[in-house]
């Protein structure tokens, strides 16, 4: 059973909205308070990257299940400049925007599954999954 919503990310207020929707879905799936906070924070990081580095995009929030347990899958997609060196981008502290450089690498640690797909000139897609324990 899949239950999905898609939201645009075009302004700072959208980042706040994404966080709120992810929080609601995380509660629905039955994530613990710690896991809710982790996935909400990851969503905040990835949504902000979409806004800041790609000038906007969208997120798909899906409630997923594999029979045994439920989970939340978030897919952030943009048609921005892409990331030339994925490994570098995933290095703690690496930033081209004067940030802490922990958004991508930190998000990877906050979730159970993390997939970064990017092509320079085409755009970036980040997919993360957090499973309920």
């Amino acid at each position: 059973m899949t239950d999905a919503i898609e939201l645009p990310i075009a302004a700072n207020s959208d980042v706040v909205l994404v966080r709120q929707r992810v929080r609601t879905s995380a509660q629905q799936v039955g994530l613990s308070l710690v896991d809710q906070t982790k996935v909400v924070t990851a969503a905040s990081e990835l949504a902000r990257n979409t806004l800041v580095y790609a000038g906007g995009g969208r997120v798909r929030i899906e409630v997923v299940g594999n029979g045994a347990r439920g989970g939340l899958r978030l897919t952030f997609a943009d048609e921005g400049p892409g990331i030339p060196d994925l490994e570098l981008a995933l290095t703690d502290g690496w930033t081209t925007g004067g940030g802490l450089g922990l958004g991508l690498s930190g998000s990877r640690r906050l979730v159970d599954e993390f997939d970064l797909d990017s092509e320079p000139g085409k755009g970036t897609r980040v997919t993360v999954v957090k499973w309920a324990r």
Binding site: V34, K38, T41, L102, S107, L110
Partner: peptide, 8 residues
């Protein structure tokens, strides 16, 4: 938890 996991 989250702050530590992020690496801040």
């Amino acid at each position: 938890h989250t702050i530590v996991t992020l690496g801040i």
